[in-house]
Structure formats: structure tokens, C-alpha cells
Design a protein around this nucleic acid. Sequence first.
DNA 1: AAAGTTCTCAACCGCTTTACG
DNA 2: TCGTAAAGCGGTTGAGAACTT
Length: 342
Amino acid sequence: MGRSPCCDKAGLKKGPWTPEEDQKLLAYIEQNGHGSWRALPAKAGLQRCGKSCRLRWINYLRPDIKRGKFSLQEEQTIIQLHALLGNRWSAIATNLPKRTDNEIKNYWNTHLKKRLTKMGIDPVTHKPKTYALGSAIGQTKDAANLSHMAQWEIARLEAEARLARESKLVPNPSQEQVGSTSAPLTNRSRAPPARPQCLDVLKAWQGVVSGMFGIARDTIESPTSTLNFKENMLPIPTVGIISDNFAGNAISTDQMQRLKENTDNSMAMYEMTYSTEEPWTAENIMEGLSDMMGCEPEMQNSSVAGDNFNANYSTGSFEDNKNYWNSILNLVNASATWKPVF
DNA sequence: AAAGTTCTCAACCGCTTTACG
DNA sequence: TCGTAAAGCGGTTGAGAACTT
């Protein structure tokens, strides 16, 4: 067997924390900081092991924790990050401000995993079950590109997660918040970005889509298509607008105008995503984008998109990709009344 | 109303990684 | 470079709540 549990050593208390214990721990940390976790219980007058105290603080008592129901945006972020990172809960948590890895892990296991399964999506691969089967036979070039990009993103996220941890050890309240992800890592370790870093992942995903559209844009004109890729692909400036305004801020009218002018598809996305009482915010748009990326239940289940998804994405030709994205965009346009089921 | 079942999530366990002498 | 302690992390458990029969 492995080492014995730390709490068995001195008959320390286990199980649920009482309000008195919480109060003691909270008071001690507020006054002295946690310092060495192993030494903390004795100093704070707690009959607990340091590990238990640390966990209680991190997962429950820390003042910067947001508790309660996960928002739709958070759910989508978790799903998308999980698709990229797998069960790396701490890395996922660094992209969800105020949520703990434990909470995210629990929420995934009790809610999101089940929902994906119900929708016919493999929660491990994040692909429709039949597609997952097909991809075992042969991956497409684009899927390979996607995978390649995902690997880069994973490496970057892990680095950021590490740096975030480091920055917590040396808090610097006066630090300037940096938005650019292209800043050198060494700089970011001093000034970690404040905006949700999930944006970078979403951008990466969108980049893949844009890249695929880009190929089609230059070479494909489909006479049978109801959509024109030249006009309907999301332009790169859109990404910039979304990036710069992600953290809950409304997009300016000026920027919105540019967005509308640049892409007909934005309108379909807006209609699909939110009702009129909702302002144009980056969240709204990102939801639309993530829906387009395949998070939308109807798309996964519908005979149109589902079949095309399975049939087209697992083959590699240009025409197939075009059809695949056409089917998605058609569905996006067709599902203007779709509301999240989450 | 009671019993049984399912769900939720805080907390634990033990392995891995990191820091440090 | 190595050994040890501490911290971090992800998988798992189990008590209590919620739901169903």
C-alpha cells in the first residue's frame, strides 16, 4: 500500500467542516496568511491535517470564489476547454475566474457529461458517437490540423496555468493587466491577463474554422449552395472585436456596425443566440460561434447536420468540407429560434 | 407517509510535481 | 544529483438531499 493518510497520524478530525472550524481557519488565514499548510492547523487551533485545511480554504472559504449555478457561458467554456484539455481541471479552472477545479470537475461529472452523452456526443472525444467511430478509420487533413492546433493550445494553456499559480504565490496588486496573449510568457508571469483566457482557446477554435473557410473562400464557389463562403465567413476583424470586448462588455455601436457590415452570418448568429432584450455583447456572439463549432444540441442530433457531420467531416475532400460547413451554416440559419437547453 | 433510489458535491486518498537543502 | 517535504492534482467516496414509487 501507499503511504498512510495524513489525517490518521494523530487522530485528527475528518469529514464535514463545522461553522466553528471554518471560522477559525478563516480568521487565522485572514490575519496571518496560510504559510505552511502543515503547520497551520496547530497554529489555528484546528484538529485537522494541513491538507484538509488547504482544501477547505481553496474549495470553499476563499473569498474570491463564486458559488452557485454555472452560467451558460461557463458551461460552454467548460465543454470547449474540456475538448481541448481533457480532465485537466486545474487548467480549465484557470480559465473560469472564481470557479475551483473541484467545482468544475463535479459539475462536469454530474451535469455536462450526462448531457453530452444524451445528445449522442462522446464526452471523452467530444465527437458524435458515430463520428468518433469513423475518425478511427482515418483522420482528415483538417482534423489533423485541428488536433495540431489543439496541442499547441494545450501546451500554452498549461504554461499559463502554471504561471497563474506562480503569480498567486507572489501577489502584486498593482500589476497592470495584460490582454495580449502574444506577450512573452516571462512578462505574463508578472502580469497575468485578467480577462478570461478561455477567449484564447475560443479564438483558436475559431481560427481553425476561419482557416477552413479561408481555403474554401479562395477556391470554392458552390452554385448549389445557399450560402456564399466569401460573404458568410467570419472575417478576422470580427475576432478582434470579440477578443477586445469579451469580458462582459458591450460592443460599441461603431464596432457593431463594422461587424454587421462584415458578415451576414453575424445576423443569423445573433438571431439564433439571443432575443432582442439582450444587448450585443461578446458573450452573445461567442455563444453563436461556439454553437457553430458543434456545441448545439439540435445540430448534433438533427438528421441533416448529424448525417452530414458524420459523413462529411470524416472524409477529406474540399467539397466535403464545403458541404459540411454548408450544412452547419444552413442549420444555423434555420435554427433562428433555437434556445439553449442547458 | 415510508421506503427505496438517484443525485449532488464536499471531502478524502494517493500519486505526481515542485521546491529546497 | 539526490532525497525529502510540501503542494498540487485528479479520481473516488459517502453523507445528505431530492426525487420516485
